[in-house]
């Protein structure tokens, strides 16, 4: 780790200016991913601007019935929030399925969204990785890629985004509020589904944010159907492990058919994957396993698994079916 300066930001404007003015600077939130990467040499900031004392540490009601989650709200506090638990259970479940109790007490909302891939080659600076050093090549494509992408990957990168929170927010049509060096005193709003990007030619960019952009809050829209939602994470251990695949979903029945449905997948792509094809296939259809399976298959029709992660296609399909069946009162298989 190289030596770095540490500053504690008093307000957002100063924080943004401090980072924007120094290409080697980074924001420090809970530190659970950044400090990890600094020890590994994956990140080498020479200035850390601590944003944990900024006044972004509360969850507040929005006019119209939504919630504004401050970027500094700790994952554990957000998961324990009564309003989140009753109105957006998918969000509480996603948070609780991530990391561990003692890490969730440190990790922040904004930092969780900006955590970086767990790809073993990305995390080991002695191996080539296009995400770390563009142009070096991708070690995972022909290497260890059991956890890697089956959707939306590029020849340059097959990494997946590890956040559970981001998957739930994508399903909920949440909006990420950002303050950047060019935003003056204002903020800009980015739909959660558009925050992260596919790797394409530039796997080094995880998100659409630029240097100095600071997430200040995440807005949850009022979404009555989210009261019936859930997050299901399939992983190699019963706890404290990253997803093989995960599914965030909410379903609203209108009479005997599905009126509205939201589905997002984790562990399958470089970004949380909103399953719009599956959603379209399900609207107006009866809630049964055959329909769920057909919809899941429609979503996964373009999947391009790698040598050692073909299992993710049936696993994602089956998990979608299992979650939707649970939400609509279908008996387990």
């Amino acid at each position: 780790m190289i030596p770095f300066d540490y500053r504690r930001a008093g307000d957002a404007e100063t924080a943004v200016a401090a980072v924007a003015g120094n290409p080697g600077a980074a924001f420090l939130g809970g530190g659970t991913n950044l400090v990890d990467h600094m020890k590994l040499g994956v990140a080498e900031p020479d200035l850390l601007v601590d944003v944990t004392r900024l006044p972004f540490d509360s969850v507040d009601p929005l006019p119209g019935g939504g919630l504004r989650i401050g970027a500094g709200v700790r994952n554990s506090d957000l998961a324990a929030d009564e309003r989140v638990r009753t109105r957006y259970p998918v969000l509480a479940e996603a948070l609780l399925s991530g990391a561990s109790g003692q890490l969730r007490n440190l990790a922040t909302t904004g930092g969780n969204l900006l955590q970086r891939t767990r790809c073993g080659y990305f995390q080991d600076v002695t191996t080539p990785c296009n995400k770390r050093r563009p142009g070096e090549g991708c070690s995972a494509r022909e290497g260890y890629h059991r956890y890697h992408a089956i959707l939306g990957a590029s020849p340059h990168c097959v990494a997946v985004h590890p956040s559970d929170l981001a998957v739930a927010l994508t399903a909920l049509d949440a909006v990420v509020r950002v303050r950047g060096p060019r935003d003056g005193h204002g903020e800009r709003a980015i739909p959660a589904a558009e925050l992260h990007r596919l790797p394409g030619e530039h796997p080094e960019w995880d998100t659409v944010l630029g240097h100095g952009d600071l997430i200040t809050a995440v807005d949850l829209p009022p979404l009555p159907m989210a009261a019936r939602s859930r997050y299901r994470k399939v992983r190699d251990r019963a706890s404290y492990a990253f997803a093989l695949v995960s599914v965030a979903a909410a379903v609203e029945l209108t009479g005997d058919v599905i009126g509205d449905v939201r589905i997002a997948l984790g562990g399958v792509a470089h970004k949380p994957w909103r399953a719009t094809l599956a959603e379209a296939a399900l609207r107006g259809r009866p809630p049964d396993r055959a329909e769920f399976r057909a919809a899941a298959e429609a979503e996964l029709a373009d999947a391009q698994p790698l040598r050692d992660n073909r299992f993710k296609v049936p696993m994602a399909r089956n998990t979608i079916v299992s979650v939707l069946a649970g939400l609509t009162g279908e008996e387990p298989r």
């Binding site: 767990r118 073993g120 080659y121 995390q123 080991d124 002695t126 191996t127 070690s139 022909e142 290497g143 260890y144 059991r146 190699d236 251990r237 019963a238 706890s239 404290y240 492990a241 990253f242």
Partner: peptide, 25 residues
């Protein structure tokens, strides 16, 4: 321990990716 024979190392060389049973298991 997932061994990448192109490089000659264990790719999952930490306790996040090399899984040992947790309390929940």
């Amino acid at each position: 321990s997932v061994f990448d024979d192109r490089f000659g190392f264990v790719v999952n060389h930490d306790l996040a990716e090399y899984h040992i049973a947790t309390c929940a298991d």
